[in-house]
């Protein structure tokens, strides 16, 4: 149900460390905000677009992934075309496209496990200060993926309970019961985790 956006492959980006790629997005994105030159933004879009669309995934899939973001960018471009000069609108649109292409390329070339390793590493200073335990972040992520199907199960059960009683089912009205059904298990889950000594100590 939740398949990662990672795309199998062995491109140059695939081989880089996740931290380096995140730094690249940051530096590249910031650099683009320091220039209003149309030619620079256009070149940036050409390069990042080439990187993204050259990834080993079908062109349709590549477009499909960006559809919602591209739609927002298009709407804002039209809006900005009216409230700003067309040059300014074009520059900001191209800049956004370049940043989005690069970000999508990093997402598609980095495994979740590698991201997690980087996050654990980045959390080390916070861990030393006793703010957060890196292992807890991994534990919480695992719990989300484990219990997501259960929530859909609760939702179906609520739907059937309504049908059995001949009441019209309204999804928005089911949110309260859905939350109670889900969070009610928290004690049992927490006990199970502690009983197995997963959090150590």
């Amino acid at each position: 149900m939740l398949t990662s956006l990672y795309v199998e492959g062995d491109t140059f980006l695939h081989r880089q460390r996740p931290g380096a790629k995140l730094a690249l997005i940051l530096v590249f994105g910031l650099a683009l905000y320091f220039t209003e030159l149309l030619a620079v933004q256009a070149a940036a879009v050409a390069v990042t677009g080439a990187i993204y669309f050259a990834l080993p995934m079908p062109f349709r899939e590549a477009v499909q992934r960006l559809k919602p973001v591209l739609f927002t960018i298009a709407v804002l471009a039209i809006f900005n075309g009216f409230v700003l000069s067309w040059q300014e609108a074009l520059v900001s649109t191209l800049r956004l496209l370049a940043v989005v292409f690069l970000a999508a390329a990093v997402t598609a070339t980095t495994r979740i496990a590698d991201f997690m390793e980087t996050i654990t590493w980045a959390l080390r200073p916070a861990e030393r200060l006793g703010i957060v335990r890196a292992a807890d972040v991994g534990l919480a992520l695992g719990l989300v993926l484990r219990f997501l199907p259960d929530i859909f199960g609760h939702y179906e059960a609520l739907k059937q309970a309504h049908a059995a009683r001949g009441i019209a089912f309204r999804p928005l009205r089911a949110i309260g019961p859905l939350i109670i059904l889900t969070l009610k298990d928290a004690d049992a889950i927490a006990d199970a985790i502690d009983a197995r000594g997963i959090r150590g100590r």
Binding site: L5, A103, F115
Partner: peptide
């Protein structure tokens, strides 16, 4: 924080199956 983390590491957890760094770096 957990949801944003999932978006950032490329899980399609946003409405309509969207996700990835492009969502965070995008205009919204």
């Amino acid at each position: 924080v957990l949801v944003v983390l999932m978006v950032a590491i490329g899980l399609p957890v946003l409405a309509g199956g969207a996700g990835g760094l492009q969502k965070i770096m995008g205009p919204t």
